[in-house]
Structure formats: structure tokens, C-alpha cells
Design a protein around this nucleic acid. Structure first.
Lengths: 303, 303
DNA sequence: GTCATTCTCTGACCTTAGTCAGGTAATGCC
DNA sequence: GGCATTACCTGACTAAGGTCAGAGAATGAC
């Protein structure tokens, strides 16, 4: 990355933090301490919630949450009651006044957003919101972490199930991993292979497997990205990371097969330097076969 | 503005605040309390600064700043000395250790920025920084305030001097307001006219005048935007605001003249619905004359 | 020289946002 | 029934970020 890019990011952080921060204090400052507001927000308009669940989602200390709840209770904004089935657990819900307070915070939040847009003309507003969407999208992409996981790890298994369920819907023939050439994801475990899982805020959102058979070219399997995170460039990132790791294992030729229903995947492979080749296996679910010769480039991530 | 736009801005605030906030704590948190860091930053690498100036720029309480300075002094990062000419005032400068500490904060800030870019590929980095630049630009534009000022107000006078100085450089013939058809900016004062000044963080960054002669069409004069804030759409905003105010004064026909050297201004007028007309005055500095018929539209700002 | 003003400093005080170490009641395990 | 565990609460404590009311010294206005 270049110095100008780093400078731009710093300038952005400064401007946005200052501008949004000042307005945040102005619009939301007088209302309610930040901790209480967060809690109010997390409890939500409807239904009751376990205190432990709320606490876990906000990542706060048990004593601290307890104190915040007492404060909200004193102001008549929440009602705390023991859980009907487990009286250690306590549940919390908003009262009428609590919902009103939450709506107030909501309105102020809207007012804050509107105050940013207000001085701009229609064209500038379109451009600002488009640029904000882009920043948000790419910052989200940059929080995603990728790591090697055992295919039996719950997060890995979750991805593999989601992958299978999606293909079952998508393929004309349906999809049953047991009928595929990779009935056992154990083949994606060292030393016979590896399995990558991408996570966003701890939740698994994508995966990719690499088969490293002795005496045969390596193969990419089970590349999947969750529907909610598509468009973040995650598939390409997983693919690139697999290529790097394959190269580090001395792999020179990478192969993969795919189904004609997976058009986005096929486009990704083509644009990543894979060329279509004749069928190199008899995978029943495959319509296209690709390969890519790895070069020195793949061994070091291009900066 | 639309609900989707407000929603987008709120989503942006949330995502960006969270993402940047968490990283901010991670990279800059351990180092030094935020208040001290701000002060260290504001004092700057070189030269001495009046304590009152620093305080004014940060908008902090005098007692609080005093305490922060004592803390920094204790750590040997700053040296505080009485002002040579006014011994009530105290001046502050960074010591060697202070400069080192500031450089450290600087490095951590860079590291924070880099950590946002790091997981992205080259194309994503380009897009992210471009979008950030756009957000920053438009947020800056949205902090600019526009208000009516007396042409004799120091901020107005500053703009008018900058305007004249710039034309003096730009025109083949030079520029002396005394030779222009508006020798006295007092004509831009109610009830004979009005004068708008745009400000960014309190500093004047643009102006525009309106002449409202009785029995003759109104005229736009002295439209200027400071070089540092060009590209924010400020000129168009000033022009639109003048049109609205003119319409409220019952003006139906707006006229203006301009010099051929002011190409950006000429483009602005054309794209804002002004049509070129024959010379309607004998302004010595004018090469082009424009007019625009105001309609009902101009009387209410289009949202 | 007097008096008001300016600039800085100090002490007293406050809220927020936490952390940590028990304590209590309910539940699950055997 | 006994014991460990779980969920929550309370009390004690901390750091940061500030506010407010003077005090003290220097300066400017007259």
C-alpha cells in the first residue's frame, strides 16, 4: 500500500470521527449515558430477552450490566423478571416508557444523519451515500478474518452444511455430498489437505478447501461464501489465500471442477487466471473443469 | 432526502464508528490518555505555542488543560515557560522526549490506517481510499455554513480582498475594484443588496453578493470560493442561495457579468441555467454577460 | 496608584464506564 | 442429599474526562 493511501485513511478517520463525533454529542449527548443507550437498544422493541444473552452480545461485565439495568429500572424504562423455566436467569423487556425512550434515540439518530445530508444538494447526497456504502462495504470486507480450521470444527461444519444445502437448491440434479468425489471432508485435513474458514465478527461466512493428494495435482474444493457477505470480494480472497498456501506446499498445478449453475464462481475462476480444460475426473456434479499453473508470484502476496 | 439515504448514513456511522473505534483503542489506547494525546498533537513538533491558543483550538476548560499540562510535564514531554512579553501567558513546546512520543502516536496512527487496508487487495484499496476521499470531501462540504454578513464585517472584507487579489493575478488587465462598476461594497448591504459569506470551522472560505437596484434587474457580484475549498460545490451552493433570496425579494430576472479568465465560473453559470446575453452594462472587466429568469422553483429549495 | 481584566493554576467535586472479588439463590449432576 | 456450577447482584475500587469556584500574578485603562 502507498503512503498516500495511508494518509487518506488517516485524514478520513480524523474528519469523520470529528464530524460525526461532534454531532453525536449534540444530538444524542443530552439524552442518556452511552452505556444505558446501548443496553436499551440491544433489548429491542419487542419480546423479552435473557439478561445473559444481552450481556454476551454487548460483551460487558456482569456487574456493570446489572447496575445499568437498575438505573433503567429506576427510570421505569425496563421491567426485569425471573425466567419462568430457570429462576436463576432473569429476563428483561422494555416498558411503554422504554419503547418511547428508544424511539426518541431513534429519532435523534435520524436527525443526526439528516443534518449531514441537509446542506447538500440532491446530486451531492447521492454521491455521499454511494461513497458511504462503498466505504462500509470495504471496511466490512476488511474485518473478515481467514484461518485454517479442521473440517470437523463446528464453524467449518456449518459452512459445509450451508454449502451442501445451497447446491441442493441450485443444481438441477440436487446435491448430496455423499455422491460427490469428496464424500469425506476429512480429506481436507493436514497432511492430505487444508480447510479455510472466513469469519465476520466471529460468525463463519465462507470457506474453501484444498486437496493435496500425493502424486497428483492439488484440487480446490468446497469454495463457498454466505449470501449475506457476497460482493465483498471474499471468494477471491479465499481463492488467493488457497493459491498462496498451495504454492508454499510446492504445488505447481491447481485444478478444480464446478457446476454450470455456479456462474459467479465460473467468472471468478476465469478472471483469476484459470483456464478451462477437459474433464480430469468423473465428478457427477461437475460441468466445467479448470486449471491454473502457479508461478513465483503466487508464493508471495502482491502488495 | 430519502429514508434510504438516512438509513445509509446511520449504517455508515454505526459501522465506521465501531470499526475505527475498536481499532483506535487497540492501536492508540495503551499509549496515553486521549486528552493528553490530543494536547501533544495540538502543540505540534516545532515552535512554542501560547497555552490559551492551544486551549481555544481544542475548546477545553482552562483548569483541565492545566492539569493535562502538569501530567505531560511530569513525564518530561513538554516544557512550559512564561511568555517573554506577557508573563501572565504561558507558552508550551515539546521536549525531545515529547517529539518522540508524538512520533510514536503518529506511527500507531499509521499502523491503524494500514490495518484497515491490509486485508484488501490492490483494487479494493484503490476503491476504498477513493470512496473515503469522496466521503471526506462531501462531509467537509456539509460543515460549511452560509450566512448574510455586512460587507464591512472583517470576514466579508477578507473575502473581498482575497477576491480582488486573485483577479489582479488572473486578469490580463489586472483588477482594481475601484475601477469596477461596484467601487463600493456598501451597495451589497440591505436594503440595496445583500452579501453572503461561507465559513468552514469559522474561517471564511467563500462569498457572493447580490445587488437589488430599484427599477432594474438584480445582479450577482463578487462570487468567490477560496482555493482550498474548491471542488466542494460551494460556488453552486452560494449561487443557489442567492437565487432563493433574490426570489424572496420578488426578483424575476437575475443578471451577472464575468471575465473570460474565470472559466470555471462561466461553466457554473451555464450549467445553472444562465444564458449568455449582449452586454447590459459597460463593466470594464467583463467579457461575458448572463441572465436567468427566476421561476417558482427558485422560491423553495428543492429537497 | 487604583481598579478591572486577563491568564493560569489549584482544590473540590462530578459522571461515566468499567473491573474485580465475593455473596446468594437456583439448578444440574451423581 | 451433597456438591459444583450458573446467573445475577452488591460493594469497593479505579481511571478518564471534565466542570466550577476561587486564588494569585501580571497587565491595561484611567
Amino acid at each position: 500500500m502507498t503512503t498516500e493511501q495511508v494518509e487518506q485513511v488517516r485524514r478520513f478517520n480524523r474528519t469523520v470521527a470529528e464530524r460525526v463525533g461532534v454531532l453525536h454529542d449534540h444530538y444524542l449527548g443530552g439524552a442518556r449515558p452511552y452505556g444505558q443507550a446501548r443496553l436499551l437498544w440491544q433489548i429491542g422493541d419487542e419480546g423479552t430477552h435473557d439478561v445473559r444473552g444481552v450481556r454476551a452480545r454487548l460483551g460487558l461485565d456482569s456487574g456493570y450490566v446489572s447496575r445499568l439495568l437498575r438505573a433503567l429500572e429506576r427510570d421505569g424504562l425496563v421491567a426485569v423478571e425471573p425466567h419462568p423455566e430457570d429462576r436463576r436467569v432473569r429476563t428483561v423487556r422494555l416498558t411503554e416508557a422504554g419503547r418511547a425512550e428508544r424511539a426518541l434515540l431513534d429519532d435523534r439518530s435520524d436527525a443526526l444523519a439528516a443534518s449531514l445530508l441537509d446542506p447538500l444538494d440532491a446530486r451531492q447526497r447521492d454521491r455521499l451515500t454511494a461513497a458511504m456504502a462503498e466505504v462500509e462495504r470495504l471496511l466490512t470486507a476488511s474485518v473478515v478474518t481467514v484461518e485454517v480450521l479442521d473440517p470437523d470444527h463446528p464453524d467449518a461444519a456449518l459452512c459445509l452444511r450451508a454449502y451442501a444445502a445451497e447446491l441442493q437448491e441450485l443444481f438441477d440434479t440436487g446435491f448430496d455430498p455423499a455422491n460427490s468425489l469428496l464424500p469425506d471432508p476429512g480429506e481436507l485435513r493436514a497432511p492430505r489437505g487444508l480447510f479455510l474458514v472466513a469469519r465476520l465478527h466471529g460468525d463463519p461466512v465462507g470457506c474453501a478447501g484444498l486437496k493435496l493428494p500425493t502424486g497428483a495435482p492439488a484440487e480446490i474444493k468446497r469454495l463457498w461464501v454466505s449470501p449475506g457477505t457476497r460482493g465483498l470480494g471474499l471468494a477471491r480472497r479465499l481463492l488467493t489465500e488457497l493459491e498462496e498456501r498451495a504454492a508454499r506446499h510446492g504445488v505447481e498445478l491447481l485444478r478444480l471442477d464446478t457446476n454450470k449453475a455456479l456462474e459467479a464462481a465460473t467468472r471468478l475462476y476465469r478472471s483469476s487466471g484459470y483456464t478451462e480444460v477437459p474433464a480430469f475426473n468423473d465428478e457427477p456434479y461437475a460441468d466445467h473443469w479448470f486449471e491454473k499453473r502457479l508461478t513465483q508470484e503466487n508464493r508471495t502476496r502482491p502488495q
